[in-house]
């Protein structure tokens, strides 16, 4: 074992936390390395020195202050909302459904019931809607032939004024 490898083992050796096989390996290195032996002894001395520091007692008011902090904690909020939503999951689903409903309801814009292609093409661009509803008296020029009265199935022809 090299001195470098000792770095991660030396404290565990001092602490007595090494497993037997590793402890033996470290011991073998120490037997042949004065520098590491010195280091081990000095590390042991340091841990002993750290033991000389006294233990502090918390102040007399310590526990009371902890109790005061805990007493000052807000109680669990039970708002009106909680009545409707027994669980966060339900609240989430409900709010998503609500959003969906609002979105569907807000959709506007003309939707042609008949596709534009299905509508008959009107040749006369000056198609006059009003004149197409000319009084019946104007129809006298046109032979009133009931037998040929199949206009209903045919597109309206603009009346020539």
């Amino acid at each position: 074992m090299s001195c470098e490898k000792m770095e991660t083992r030396i404290l565990a050796y001092v602490d007595g936390r090494l497993k037997e096989a590793e402890r033996a390996e470290v011991q073998k290195h120490l037997d042949g390395c004065a520098a590491c032996r010195v280091r081990v002894n000095e590390f042991r001395a340091v841990t002993d020195l750290l033991d000389e520091l006294p233990v502090m007692e918390p102040s007399g008011a310590f526990n009371a202050r902890v109790h005061a902090l805990i007493a000052a904690e807000p109680r669990k909020r039970i708002g009106w909302f909680a009545w409707f939503t027994p669980s966060p999951r339900i609240a989430f689903v409900a709010s998503m459904l609500l959003l969906l409903t609002v979105w569907l309801g807000s959709r506007q814009g003309p939707e042609p019931l008949i596709a534009p292609e299905a509508l008959p093409v009107v040749e006369n661009a000056d198609y006059d809607v009003i004149s197409s509803f000319a009084p019946l008296s104007d129809l006298s020029q046109v032979p009133d032939d009931d037998a040929n009265d199949n206009d209903a199935s045919q597109p309206q022809q603009p009346q020539q004024m």
Partner: peptide, 24 residues
Amino acid sequence: KSLLFRAYETLRVELAPLVASSVK
């Protein structure tokens, strides 16, 4: 373990006068 090693290395230097008196 490297962190602890470096810490103890520093401490043994800082506390050298006290360490020397207790180590043979």
